[in-house]
């Protein structure tokens, strides 16, 4: 994984528009998907068995959406320590294919307050090399550790 971390220690120094994480992952392989199937408990065979994928009308296996979301989680927890992540959500825009290189990024969309604490709303997205959006969403992160 290559990683660009633009503002590692925030101290509330973020401003709207800052890209606070930008990570590119190795190409998705069948091996990656096999590991993820075992590690995640998601045994849906269309992710690991090309015969099952074809029987389901797909040209090949597709990546687990939750693997892509786990990659995006790493971008968020690189931008802020994990316990500052209060809530987040994503939409899966397109399936991931074998060989695709995924790039996950987080940018500051808005500075807000959550329960009286300074926080930020981050815009999140995962794209492939062609720029196709695989996953997008947003996260609410605190700008200091919760009590």
């Amino acid at each position: 994984m290559t990683q660009t971390l633009l503002k590692p220690d925030l101290n509330q120094t973020w401003t709207v528009g800052d890209v606070v994480a930008d990570q590119t992952h190795p190409p998705i392989s069948r091996y990656t998907l096999a590991l993820y199937a075992g590690a995640s408990g998601d045994h849906n065979d269309v992710h690991v068995d090309i015969d099952a994928a074809k029987a389901a009308g797909l040209p090949d296996v597709i990546g687990h959406g939750m693997l892509t979301m786990a990659y995006l989680a790493r971008a968020v927890t690189t931008a802020v320590p994990q316990r500052r992540l209060r809530r987040w959500g994503v939409r899966f825009a397109a399936p991931t294919r074998i060989g695709e290189v995924l790039r996950c990024s987080a940018a500051v969309a808005e500075l807000v307050e959550i329960d009286g604490l300074p926080a930020a709303r981050l815009d999140l997205k995962t794209i492939n090399r062609a720029g196709e959006i695989k996953l997008f969403g947003e996260a609410i992160v605190l700008l200091a550790d919760p009590a």
Binding site: H43, D45, R86, G89, F92
Partner: peptide, 30 residues
Amino acid sequence: MLDVADPLDWPKKLGIDIGRVLHGEQAFTY
């Protein structure tokens, strides 16, 4: 899913063919 006998238990109980399922959206609150 990890510790249960069938990780795909509840979709199957709804009669869903798991091979025809896509993940549309996912959110978490901690």
